[in-house]
Computed example of a mutant assay.
Amino acid sequence: MNHPDPSAPIYAELIREQGDVPGDARRTAEEVLRDLSRVIQMPPAGLGAHQAGLPVPMR
């Protein structure tokens, strides 16, 4: 869970009431990316598929 900023009491209260929704979404997205990387070969960040030597679908 993200630790609320003491200067943002409204945010701290929302986290107490609703949970850390942005943090949960970030962790879920990271988990999905890890799972996908086991199945799909992804080019390194900033490189296109053709630059990374991966097949490029025909349009």
Rank of each mutant, 00 (worst) to 15 (best):
G46V: 02
A12L: 07
D35C: 09
E17I: 15
E30P: 01
T28A: 07
I40K: 02
V21L: 10
E30A: 03
S7C: 07
E31L: 07
L54N: 05
P43G: 03
I10S: 00
A49Y: 07
Y11M: 06
N2D: 08
R34S: 11
R26D: 14
Q41P: 11
Q41R: 14
P57G: 08
M42V: 12
P55N: 04
V32M: 00
P6M: 00
G46K: 01
P22E: 09
R38N: 10
S37Y: 01
Q41H: 12
P9R: 05
S37L: 01
P4T: 04
T28N: 00
H3Y: 13
P6N: 01
R34C: 03
M1Q: 12
P22V: 12
P22W: 05
I10G: 00
S7E: 10
V32E: 00
Q51N: 01
L36E: 07
P9Q: 06
A29R: 14
A25L: 08
L54H: 05
I40H: 01
P6T: 07
Q41M: 08
I15Y: 09
G23N: 09
S7F: 11
E31I: 11
Y11A: 09
P9N: 05
R34H: 04
I10K: 00
S37R: 09
P43K: 03
P43S: 04
E30C: 00
R26L: 14
L14S: 09
G46I: 02
H50S: 11
